[in-house]
Design a binder for these strands. Structure first.
Lengths: 284, 284
DNA sequence: TTGACTATGAAAAAATAATATCAAAGCTTA
DNA sequence: TAAGCTTTGATATTATTTTTTCATAGTCAA
């Protein structure tokens, strides 16, 4: 029987340490198990005895026997590297596997819903340090806005994540200049106050507006210069923002790579200033 | 350099015994070299010292070093499509498309690094309304924690997203009870104050700790009852949290579907209470 | 044929790795 | 809260593996 399967079979009867080991073994399967018992213990912050007991529990004679099995598995599956992956699949509970395949199609779809010209335009816009960037999202989608703003701040200055409270927005509205960019994330159930914000920002300062939304198009999109529309229907009770997330990661990567020299210096400077006890800075 | 290549390079300068070894190694490459030195000696009718000398001659530190190299070669040759990208920084062809294919492999990998039993356990834990849930993440990964907490709050009560400022944490620490759950998101560059938080929370209230991290395992994981380890290497300048994100979405979906009746009622009640001008509530 | 050299493996030594033991810590249950 | 059970890693022990040492056998040139 595959080691992998034994892990799965036993996984309900594992102790905390054993679960840690199980996780580590699966994450870099099957190579993690080819380390010496000491190295593996160190990497997983457990101890050799625990590992020894664990593999016994899995039904092997000992650690070396366990390793021989792993090697044998590799050898067997070598004929087609795909075997390993196919093996992976069957082990997963249906739910996760199923969910992942849906997410994968969403992601592919959201990439193809974006033209590379548009993608490049937005990257250039957000990467342009002469423009301030203001970001905000809806109740849930603000997590994406936060993710983008935290990354963007590592690349450039002039990034402002608007607070949730609309009372404070005017303060930002007053600061916006025509060259600036307002980046809105708004998925369905759209929030009226966001499109209100977009309208007023456009009216008062005429800045560029970029909206990340779904195919039903948030009303915010009416005021937008650029719209990323990503599919979000996962066929489950929640919408999935995975497509949007990957699109944003692609965008952030593009921006950072385009200005890599500057980015690198900025991150280095940033690191040297980090409070090492790790107080996280607030997005103002 | 590949072991194979080293063998070929040296093949003209080999003694009789060494040629025998060379043949045996190539005949069942690379697995023959994964035997113990004694077994290999027996199979090739040579002796351990000869083999030891031979691998030294090939340029390795010793037999174990030689084996490590072989394992690394196998690992390389079984690389997933994702890994193949690593290294070539400059993405040619369509940037987006390429990025997406990397993300897809990350997502599949993070699903296969999680056993369904573990997945179910964590879902049950976070879905259990008798337990309060506290969430927080690192500087960037807090976006994920935020995403999870916003969703979770639609499903159940007793969800608290900790603020970034550690000064305020004690207030939450005092509230934590043994049955509660602390959900931490911490990807590399780990933040010391998060593991400090985990340690103190564990010490003072003995609650359950669930950690979402990467394969290098945040120090936070030492205090954890459950660890989700997801791959994050995108082969670009930033790590990608897409795998983690999808895993979280799967989890949230699972939780919502399990308690669907309650969830539906909760969302309906929530909607009727919404300030329609859409002031977003703060995660306290 | 001899002597100088190399190649080789048996045996011993060393290094390394794995497991058993045990005390302490953690968890459960009454 | 205490007693009893389980889990855990430090330490000690044992087992295994690898390398060194060294004597012998083989090879080649003179």
């Amino acid at each position: 029987m595959q080691v992998r399967q034994r892990l799965e079979n036993l996984s309900s009867a594992l102790t905390a340490t054993e679960r840690k080991l199980c996780t580590a073994l699966l994450l870099d399967y099957p190579y993690a198990g080819l380390d010496t018992i000491q190295d593996l213990a160190k990497k997983t912050s457990t101890s050799p005895p625990s590992i020894s007991r664990f593999v016994t529990k899995l039904g092997f004679q000992g650690y070396q026997d366990f390793q021989r099995h792993l090697i044998e598995e590799i050898r067997q599956s070598n004929r087609s590297p795909l075997d390993l992956h196919v093996g992976d699949r069957t082990i997963q509970g249906d739910f996760l596997e199923d969910f992942v395949s849906r997410a994968v199609s969403l992601i592919s779809a959201s990439a193809s819903a974006t033209t590379s010209a548009q993608f490049e335009r937005v990257c250039a816009l957000l990467g342009d340090e002469k423009r301030n960037v203001y970001l905000i999202g809806g109740r849930i989608s603000d997590a994406i806005a936060l993710y983008v703003s935290r990354h963007l701040r590592q690349v450039r200055s002039g990034v402002f994540h608007l607070p949730a409270d609309p009372e404070i927005w005017p303060e930002y509205l007053l600061r916006m200049r025509p060259k600036d960019v307002l980046f809105l994330v708004d998925f369905r159930r759209y929030q009226r106050n966001l499109s209100e914000l977009a309208r007023r920002a456009k009216e008062e300062s005429g800045l560029q507006i970029v909206v990340l939304t779904d195919k039903w198009m948030s009303p915010t999109a009416n005021h937008a210069n650029e719209v990323f529309a990503t599919p979000i229907e996962s066929g489950t009770v929640w919408d999935s923002y995975a497509g949007a997330m990957v699109l944003m990661e692609a965008m952030l990567t593009r921006i950072a790579e385009t200005n890599w020299d500057k980015t690198r210096k900025r991150i280095e400077a940033w690191d040297s200033l980090r409070f090492d006890h790790g107080a996280r800075d607030d997005d103002q």
